[in-house]
């Protein structure tokens, strides 16, 4: 089975985001970048399928040289090789386009990726790849079983799950709950350094959106914090009163 995993290199969840001087992007100073947590699920699923059905796992990302770190992390988990598509990405459309260009000649049986990158949170790449590569896709997937050229995917939706039947080759976007990603072992981290990472140049068409500004949300909060002072019931009643009379939410 020829499995492709698309990954991205994103700021760690514990990172505080500061806006850069251009007011359009984040200030990278002090920001730790990691393999997108949802992509870890995709890598894990790919490795399990490869080990069961034989084949190869190729990890691919779009970005500058530092994005190679995300590939190395996936290789350390156990993926076989990597492809870095070098190119400036101004929007998700360009990312999807460059990924599609790189994936098209690879004859993939299965393309896995995280349901979203935790930077722009758009959930755009899987559906866009589906259209660009003319392949079916299932997104927000928490369960996957493959039987020959058919798969059953469970998609998490509001209030429940959809059971989706899908034909291979296809695209699957992973959601938390699909599996428990492994931690790379030290020998595998060492081995990953020897695994091949090919670099190719992306050639996207024009971006379709333009950032006007990036800001930090500022919301004035009432900030009325009560103390129990030995009488939690009284504090609870006072809180309920404020929610009813001031905030008018009940």
């Amino acid at each position: 089975m020829n499995i492709i995993v698309c990954v991205s290199h994103v700021p760690d969840t514990t990172t505080r985001i500061n806006v850069a001087g251009d007011a359009k992007s984040i200030d990278p100073a002090g920001v730790k970048f990691i393999l997108n947590p949802y992509d870890e699920l995709a890598v894990e699923e790919a490795l399990r399928l490869r080990d069961k059905m034989k084949g190869e796992v190729t990890v691919i990302t779009v970005g500058a040289d530092n994005a190679k770190e995300a590939i190395r992390q996936a290789l350390a988990m156990g993926a076989d090789k990597g492809i870095l598509v070098k190119g400036e990405k101004k929007d998700s459309w360009q990312v999807a386009e460059m990924l599609a260009q790189a994936i098209k000649p690879l004859n993939a049986d299965l393309i896995l990726l995280g349901k979203q990158s935790i930077d722009f949170d758009g959930m755009e790449i899987a559906p866009m790849l589906s259209e660009l590569l003319d392949l079916p896709a299932a997104t927000v997937v928490v369960g996957l079983t493959i039987d020959g050229n058919k798969a059953t995917a469970e998609k998490e939706v509001e209030g429940g799950r959809e059971v989706i039947e899908i034909e291979l080759p296809c695209i699957i976007a992973a959601q938390k709950g699909l599996n428990d990603p492994r931690y790379p072992s030290l020998p595998n981290i060492m081995k990953a350094k020897q695994k091949p990472v090919q670099e190719i140049q992306g050639a996207p068409s024009a971006a379709r959106t333009e950032v006007v500004q990036l800001t930090k949300p500022e919301k004035k909060r009432a900030n009325k914090i009560l103390k129990t002072d030995g009488n939690p019931t009284h504090a609870a009643h006072e809180l309920a009163r404020m929610l009813h009379e001031e905030a008018k939410v009940i």
Partner: peptide
């Protein structure tokens, strides 16, 4: 608490039952 509109500093196990009744 820094982003809360309302809050109580205290033991949730003591606060939740009377709060539930009042709501």
């Amino acid at each position: 608490f820094s982003i809360a509109d309302y809050g109580i500093v205290g033991d949730a196990f003591e606060i939740l039952p009377p709060l539930t009744e009042e709501i």
